[in-house]
């Protein structure tokens, strides 16, 4: 038997990589994913290191230097209508955006995964009821749904996060359910059931880790989406309230200066655009790498 063991396992030159590590390895070769990743890392560093990156305070007003043009003084990107340093406000704004992105995606993920997992795993009438409810939620335009929720809860940054998170739950639930349905049919689930594994063990320890890839892609896209939505809500006055340095709010409050001081509107807009682009690029790269159909 021993010689056979040797024969059976020798001569194989398989690298000792997990699927995840292999995916990371392949991600290195994906240009758009790398660009996205760099943008996101920059965005996170900016948020974390905000006080050290700028000598100014985001909310200190100095009327004397209001609407200073960019690239002429120590205020690199210029100042806004109240004389606040624009770059500082954008840097601090990234903190708000990061928090909004994580928390609202966290909300959608938690409930989306739970709902999708239960609905997909048990099927039958549970699935039918849950999915009809999800269908109804999906039939309401996303922005409208968010606005309704904020209107009910009252305009504030926290409520905006909740609204964005809740209104995205159906998307996640659908993605999770679809991959659970596919994963559930695999023999290894039957095998583990025949070993005596309980439903919760099967759902959370076996099915969920195997259906995580599309959820991961969805969540990455979701962060960008949430940042965009929160900017939109703040723009409409339903999200962050002044004087918070939030990108959407910054754009909204400087609408009237579009012609006279273009930079006050433009730079926060560029910040939103870059960040959302970063998350979308990374998500696209992840999708390419994690999609098994893309593998040979």
């Amino acid at each position: 038997m021993n010689t056979e063991i040797k024969e059976n396992t020798n001569k194989q030159s398989i690298e000792k990589n997990s699927l995840f590590k292999e995916a990371l390895f392949q991600l290195k070769g994906n240009k758009s994913a790398i660009i996205g990743f760099i943008i996101i890392v920059g965005f996170i560093l900016m948020a974390v290191l905000a006080p050290w990156l700028t000598p100014f305070e985001p909310n200190s007003q100095e009327i004397s230097i209001r609407k200073t043009a960019p690239f002429v003084s120590s205020h690199i990107l210029g100042t806004d209508d109240l004389g606040r340093d624009l770059l500082t406000r954008i840097i601090y704004g990234s903190r708000v955006s990061l928090i909004i992105g994580t928390i609202s995606v966290g909300i959608s993920l938690t409930f989306g995964i739970l709902i999708g997992l239960i609905s997909g795993y048990y099927g039958g009438w549970v699935d039918r009821i849950v999915m009809r409810f999800i269908d109804i939620m999906l039939a309401i335009p996303y922005v409208l749904l968010t606005i309704v929720i904020v209107a009910l809860l009252g305009p504030s940054l926290v409520n905006a996060m909740i609204a964005i998170g809740v209104s995205q739950i159906p998307q996640y639930a659908r993605v999770v359910r679809a991959s659970v349905l596919a994963e559930r049919e695999n023999d290894y689930i039957t095998a583990e059931r025949s070993l005596g594994a309980s439903n919760s063990e099967l759902m959370f320890k076996s099915i969920l880790p195997n259906s995580i890839a599309p959820i991961f892609v969805q969540a990455t896209l979701g962060v960008g989406n949430a940042i965009l939505s929160s900017a939109a809500l703040s723009f409409l006055g339903l999200g962050a309230q002044p004087p918070t340095s939030e990108w959407g709010l910054m754009i909204a409050s400087s609408r009237e200066f579009v012609t006279s001081a273009w930079w006050i509107v433009t730079f926060p807009g560029v910040a939103v655009l870059l960040t959302v682009l970063g998350f979308n690029l990374l998500a696209d790269g992840l999708r390419d790498v994690l999609d098994p159909r893309m593998k040979d």
Partner: peptide
Amino acid sequence: RKMQMVFQDPFSSLNPRKKVGSLLAQPMQI
């Protein structure tokens, strides 16, 4: 514990995210 099954497809009957060690430990852990 007394009744076990061996499946047809050796690709789909093993959880792809588990190492062989934990695949084999699972029955006793359960």
